[in-house]
Simulated scan of single mutants.
Amino acid sequence: MNGRPNPASFEPSDEREEIARLLPAPADWDLPRGRHLHHKDLLMRHIDRDQATTTTTTAAARPGRRRLRPVLLAPVTALALAGIVTAGIALNDGDRKPAAGTSADAAADMQPVSALLGQISDAAGKRDTPTVRDDQFSYVMKKVREADLSSGKAVVGPLHDYELWLSQDPEPVRKQGLIRSDGETMPLNAEFGDTNGTPAGFSRPTYQWLASLPTDPGRLLDHLYAKAPQAENRERDQAVFEQIGDLLDQVMPARTAAALYRAAAKIPGVTETPRAQDAVGRRGLGIARSDTKNGVVTEWVFSTQDFTYLGHSTRLTKDTPYAEAGTLLDSSALLESAVVDKPGRLPGSEKK
């Protein structure tokens, strides 16, 4: 009726090709893997609904197709997603940092930002962390906002709630947990392509997996440069910095949190920033890095009182066809991070 192929005849590879064809040309910036999944999932569901409308008879005769991507962590825009859908996630070993212990590594330890990150690390290392069982779920409650680029211009959306329940099962899982975004609750299924379930790792950072990371900052940073996923056309240093940021709102061992902050201090280009604030306007200490390749700056915000992580923001640092320099791309404010027994259950509540 509208010239689209019949979805009943699609294979998984056909779906990816059709979705990539329908998407607009990619924007000239990328965000970490975790941040593009929210809008990708919404896009998939929008396409599902459109197909269901135009093929009512076929849809009624067969079960509904599962969503192709889960939602995970903070959202990203549809145009930025287009570049990731078509290009995929790739590792770039050509931008690996010098090995720990070199003169460059020693110089990084002398950067002014190292003193602040050292204080943040020391505070994180002294915090109590809960005992986490494999049958439990980590819980994150945030306020988030992001720019929508689907119209070709950046339109910053309103602040809204975002909750995530993530399975702590160390084995690959087909049901990762739940997402509740702006009042809508959605199941968090396995990553697309994970036919045997999604394992613990960067896209499903369980407490046990985080505890397995090296706690020596140099070794940890080498591991992140070697293993962290990266979208194409982004500096490797920036990809690792943003990957650390994606882990900061998760429940983790104190020693792992401490090591992550000291590892971040060794990344070239990391600086302190004045007048930092999170998505709800809480002001604090800023740690930031700019990606000159894509023209974005990502900033972490920490409390001036006890150095706890408050949230993040990402902004443009150069003019683009869709927005001017300084435009907000996404931001968050972490309100709660805890462990619960069931997905959908709130900390301190017995409700299921």
Score class of each variant (00 low, 15 high):
Glu11Phe: 02
Arg16Asn: 11
Glu17Asn: 05
Glu17Met: 00
Glu18Met: 04
Ala20Val: 15
Arg21Gly: 09
Arg21Tyr: 08
Leu22Cys: 08
Leu23Arg: 11
Asp28Phe: 01
Trp29Thr: 12
Gly34Asn: 14
Arg35Met: 14
Leu37Ile: 10
Lys40Arg: 15
His46Gln: 15
His46Ala: 15
Ile47Tyr: 12
Ile47Phe: 12
Asp50Asn: 05
Gln51Asp: 06
Ala52Asn: 03
Thr55Lys: 07
Thr55Phe: 14
Ala61Lys: 12
Arg65Lys: 12
Arg69Val: 12
Ala78Arg: 15
Ala78Lys: 14
Ala82Ile: 07
Gly83Lys: 13
Val85Ile: 14
Val85Leu: 15
Ala90Gly: 06
Leu91Tyr: 04
Asp93Ala: 10
Gly94Trp: 04
Asp95Cys: 06
Asp95His: 08
Lys97Asn: 10
Lys97Asp: 10
Pro98Met: 05
Ala100Gly: 08
Ala104Lys: 08
Ala104Trp: 03
Ala104His: 06
Asp109Ile: 01
Met110Pro: 03
Ser114Pro: 00
Ile120Lys: 02
Ala123Glu: 08
Lys126Asn: 09
Asp128Ile: 09
Arg133Glu: 12
Asp134Gln: 14
Asp135Thr: 04
Asp135Ile: 03
Val140Gln: 10
Met141Gly: 10
Met141Cys: 10
Lys143Ala: 15
Arg145Glu: 08
Leu149Gln: 09
Gly152Lys: 11
Ala154Val: 11
Ala154Gly: 13
Val155Lys: 05
Val155Ile: 06
Val156Ala: 09
Pro158His: 06
His160Phe: 01
Asp161Lys: 06
Tyr162Glu: 03
Leu164Lys: 04
Glu171Phe: 12
Pro172Ser: 13
Arg174His: 12
Lys175Val: 12
Leu178Phe: 10
Ser181Ala: 14
Asp182Asn: 13
Gly183Lys: 03
Glu184Asp: 07
Met186Thr: 14
Pro187Thr: 11
Asn189Leu: 15
Phe192Val: 06
Asp194Trp: 11
Asn196Gln: 14
Thr198Cys: 04
Pro205His: 02
Thr206Trp: 01
Ala211Glu: 10
Pro214Glu: 07
Asp222Lys: 12
Ala231Val: 02
Asn233Met: 07
Asn233Ile: 04
Asn233Pro: 07
Phe241Pro: 13
Glu242Gly: 11
Glu242Asp: 15
Gln243Cys: 13
Gly245Val: 01
Asp249His: 09
Gln250Pro: 09
Val251Thr: 10
Ala257Cys: 04
Ala257Glu: 15
Ala258Met: 08
Ala265Thr: 02
Ala265Val: 08
Lys266Gln: 11
Lys266Arg: 15
Ile267Tyr: 04
Gly269Lys: 09
Val270Gln: 08
Arg275Met: 11
Ala276Trp: 00
Asp278Val: 07
Ala279Asp: 06
Arg283Phe: 08
Ile287Arg: 10
Ser290Val: 11
Gly295Asn: 02
Thr298Pro: 07
Glu299Leu: 05
Glu299Ile: 00
Val301Met: 05
Phe302Val: 06
Ser303Arg: 00
Phe307Ile: 03
Thr308Lys: 08
Thr308Ile: 04
Tyr309Lys: 03
Gly311Ile: 02
Gly311Tyr: 03
Ser313Gly: 06
Leu316Ala: 13
Thr320Leu: 09
Thr320Ser: 11
Glu324Tyr: 00
Leu328Glu: 07
Asp330Ile: 00
Ala333Lys: 00
Leu334Gln: 01
Ser337Asn: 02
Arg345Trp: 06
